[in-house]
């Protein structure tokens, strides 16, 4: 009888294992909760802060510069004894409260470059929706300060989606096709050195044309993590992936040809 019982258990467990295995063998798709920020009329500060947190560490690409090295001020930790950004933002510009200052720093970063830093930050309004920007502001405020972003700051969702999608994409630096203007405008020199100008986080681009073909340069701009230059493996993931969206085709081509000719 024990043999029979064991056989029954074996058949049952075997059948279950087979079904479970098959279901696990096919590629797995999970239905995620839509991440679209539908920060409606009754959004709570906590929701804004958590959304901003995700943007800061994710799609926003902020950590590429802030909090890493000396290219940009620390935001989440102490900066020159002034505390995290939430504590110091209100004192930066006379007549601007913390909220307004942070928002404008995101949309037109070159207006308020902190002394001692290069103007390398891209205009975040090109990359993020107004809702996302306000979520970021709320998140930054929550670091050392009080969150005073409310639903009334955020434009309603319909206008915001159209404004992001129908903004004429003039490209970086006003659509200029002068390579050096693009390089400065896109903030490349924040990390890369070219002709002696710029930082040393990324590979030196001065002689990049002798190492990479035009195609590889293009690929490296569009998908920076696909191939990492030797010696820079540790910095994988730092270079923002949004240049494909920001540069116009003409600008990208101009930039690629310029770099490829730098032998």
């Amino acid at each position: 009888m024990w043999a029979t019982n064991l056989r029954i258990i074996g058949v049952v467990l075997g059948t279950l294992a087979l079904y479970t295995l098959i279901a696990n063998k096919i590629p797995q798709v999970q239905s995620e909760v839509p991440r679209a920020l539908s920060l409606g009329a009754n959004v709570t500060p906590e929701q804004l802060v958590s959304a901003g947190d995700q943007l800061y560490h994710g799609a926003g690409g902020c950590t590429a510069c802030h909090g890493l090295g000396t290219r940009a001020p620390n935001l989440l930790t102490d900066e020159k004894g002034q505390g995290p950004v939430g504590a110091r933002c209100g004192k930066r510009e006379a007549g601007k409260d913390c909220k307004a200052y942070l928002y404008e720093s995101l949309t037109s970063p070159r207006a308020y470059v902190v002394a001692g830093y290069e103007p390398i930050m891209p205009e975040m309004g090109r990359i993020l929706s107004p809702q996302q920007l306000w979520a970021l502001v709320a998140f930054l405020e929550s670091n050392g300060g009080t969150v005073d972003v409310s639903a009334s700051d955020i434009p309603s969702s319909t206008t915001s989606t159209t404004s992001t999608s129908s903004t004429p994409s003039a490209g970086i630096a006003g659509g200029s096709t002068d390579p050096m203007t693009i390089i400065r405008g896109a903030g490349c020199t924040g990390c890369h050195k070219i002709n002696g100008e710029g930082g040393a986080i990324g590979p030196d681009l001065t002689h990049v044309g002798s190492r990479l073909s035009a195609n590889l340069i293009r690929e490296s701009i569009l998908t920076p993590d696909a191939k990492i230059a030797k010696g820079f493996e540790k910095f994988k993931g730092i270079m923002p992936k949004m240049f494909g969206n920001q540069l116009t085709a003409a600008q990208l081509e101009a930039l690629v040809q310029f770099l490829a000719s730098h032998k």
Partner: peptide
Amino acid sequence: AATPALGYAAIMIS
């Protein structure tokens, strides 16, 4: 809140 993938569901069902 996310609806799990089939593999996870299969383990739960089993």
